[in-house]
Design a protein around this nucleic acid. Sequence first.
DNA 1: CAGTGGTCTAGACCACACT
DNA 2: GTGTGGTCTAGACCACTGC
Lengths: 268, 268
Amino acid sequence: MNTTPLASHESATPAASDGEGPSPMAATPAFSPLYQQIKALILQSLQSGEWKPSAAIPSENVLAARYKVSQGTVRKAVDELAAENLLVRRQGKGTFVATHAERTVQYRFLKLLPDNGDPKSEGPAQRRIVDCKRIRATADVARALSMRAGDPVLQVRRILLFAGTPTILEDLWLPGTPFKGLTAERLAAYGGPMYALFETEFGVHMARAEEKIRAVLPDAEQCELLQVKPNTPLLSVERIAYTYNDVPMEMRRGLYLTDTHYYRNALN
Amino acid sequence: MNTTPLASHESATPAASDGEGPSPMAATPAFSPLYQQIKALILQSLQSGEWKPSAAIPSENVLAARYKVSQGTVRKAVDELAAENLLVRRQGKGTFVATHAERTVQYRFLKLLPDNGDPKSEGPAQRRIVDCKRIRATADVARALSMRAGDPVLQVRRILLFAGTPTILEDLWLPGTPFKGLTAERLAAYGGPMYALFETEFGVHMARAEEKIRAVLPDAEQCELLQVKPNTPLLSVERIAYTYNDVPMEMRRGLYLTDTHYYRNALN
DNA sequence: CAGTGGTCTAGACCACACT
DNA sequence: GTGTGGTCTAGACCACTGC
């Protein structure tokens, strides 16, 4: 009742295990609790698109029957996925696949807030697509996206304005293949977070991301785009975003003007 | 079996309600699960110093008996506290009160990493206390610490050096009363994180914090202390740290040199 | 009302650490 | 071996949603 993905606990050897036995070579016994295996199976269904963002997944009892485990075990698996913001539980209604398209959690990954702390106070951001073209990956972009230098990528440049003032200048790079067909027009036409468009149009959900933050000075071009004087210190926010299966699917570099905004972070 | 803090659940008409019934006036019934109440009780014991940082708390079974609930309910309460990094579970050994003095998690709240990503590669930070004096709280410090302007506070200024180069210039303010007796000498003499000293010497544990990050340029004095040229962009990191009961106990402002380091943040 | 997630219990057994 | 946390089960009941 170990290692084997879904070894049963009551019935006799159910998950038949086609040649997937606990190899005696394994240095680590690699004990994996049942609920972790269930979690992996759920993750797989998310990744495969069986359950799409904003849709409901089967109820806990149904999943318990499907995986041949108790409801409590499914619950623990779902609990963890909900804690990671991949699923959203709603009492009385069901469990839903998290999406970037929700009105309530718009810009889930954007931590820049106005000085008063209330993003609603300045209304929705204005967005301007400056550029969108297919190029070949430079070395650093290729490394970030686990591609080879020279592979086709999409490069997008855009500006976000809050309360009418340009505040964020962003360059982002997407792997060419999964995002085939993405154009400046489609980006400009879409109302709502870019990540929401990725979900509906390309079946790519950004599950988590990592950011590296530095303080920098803008070059002449950046000054003009952001309409700031030279020597205006800016936040450089470099992000790599990952899908369910932890494949990097976007590299992004933002320049944030922090005169009237700040980057918020909670430490636990 | 509601509202009442520890109403029994097995005896007849559990929430006996000694005049504490679900008042019909109440706009919200304010249903609070048992495990949340247990969590609050544990939190109270942490806050009161009954269980000190790095010490073990009673076993789950003992707590279950003490609070007259099942072990599973205690478990859920402890699970949440462990998720918040207030407790640390160690299988086979027990559950321990989290501390800032651990070798493994030193500088839990410091998110600045060297470019190579490995903090161990540059060895332990060098620390220099520049200044430590008692002053009267300015308006902004008072607001951050929920005090009145003019109340006594301790102001500390220090520099952190990584691999010999000054990288962080920090000013921090502490409420005068809880930190009575703190001097530059004691700070300088102590090896280990400042927050660890706060725990052992003043019984103050920083449970969580919030940071506001901006890009700024240093003034002349800051340039000299950090040994950088004017117009070097720096990260301004403003932190407010809170104790168990969410009382703000420190305000801190750091200037980070991000030439060879970056501020790391994970988004979920 | 039925169906969903949320809470609580009680008991069994496993994995790990110390002695 | 004993005691600790960790997993899993089965069943009961509560709270919320929507038909």
